[in-house]
Design a protein around this nucleic acid. Structure first.
Lengths: 126, 126
DNA sequence: TGCGGATATGCAGGCGAATCGATGGTGTTG
DNA sequence: CAACACCATCGATTCGCCTGCATATCCGCA
């Protein structure tokens, strides 16, 4: 029921790339899908984006509700999902809860999605 | 409410990266979320993986139902989602429908997710 | 032309998720 | 100490999606 947590770390090894080598097994697929599911929401993508581009690379809930146009509980909910997926880290300072990206986590996902390292060079044009 | 189709192509460009530069807007977030949503399912990740690792890099539905343990209609459904998201392409030869990856699409996603880290280093480079 | 196999589509049940209002906990400030 | 601001959790509602079964469509072959 609850989210993956450190799922990324557990499958962190580069070779598991679902798009290289041989087929991934059920459990790896489920863990990766869990993290991707955390990402696959417009509100959460915008949250990551907002946090990343905020001064100091961090932001608290009160800075995020307005730009998103969502209620505070909803924003808290999304931040929770992202944090449990390992994509954000939370630090409470006084009354405020500051969130910041975990760059390694996102990099890991990007890497998992990157097809075989045989750079497909030519296609990029246009 | 069909899926995104060529959504990736439309935001294909590097600067739109949600994790670099400035916050992405609502529509870009929705398009990217749409594609990620297509990816964020264990069955579909395994489908991509199976197809990629099949001989010739292609496979037809009848080859995929058994390894997945899902019914044929369900597999067709997932393939449809992936195709409409631009991640797969379909070619019908005779009675069979062959599916293969669209490497550029996956590469684009990976790139969109790659944080500034990798290339930016605003303070360091140059 | 008619039959059979390979895919796609329609329909429906059931589970999970997004959202909000209300509530409770906790630190800050007057 | 009391009032207030920030944030997380709870309960309820609505909505979308995964899945299978039944059926329709398409194509090659006899």
């Amino acid at each position: 029921m609850e989210y993956v947590g450190t799922a990324l770390a557990e499958m962190t090894m580069p070779q598991i790339s679902p798009l290289a080598g041989e087929p991934i097994d059920r459990s790896d697929a489920e863990r990766l899908a869990g993290v991707l599911k955390a990402l696959a929401d417009p509100a959460r993508l915008r949250l990551l984006s907002l946090i990343q581009s905020a001064p100091e690379g961090e932001a608290c809930v009160c800075d995020l509700t307005a730009p998103l146009g969502l209620s505070q509980p909803t924003v808290s909910h999304h931040l929770r999902i992202l944090t449990e997926a390992g994509l954000l880290e939370r630090e409470k300072r006084g009354v405020w809860a500051y969130y910041r990206l975990v760059p390694a986590a996102i990099a890991t996902i990007a890497e998992l999605l990157t097809p075989p390292r045989k750079r497909a060079t030519k296609k990029a044009a246009r």
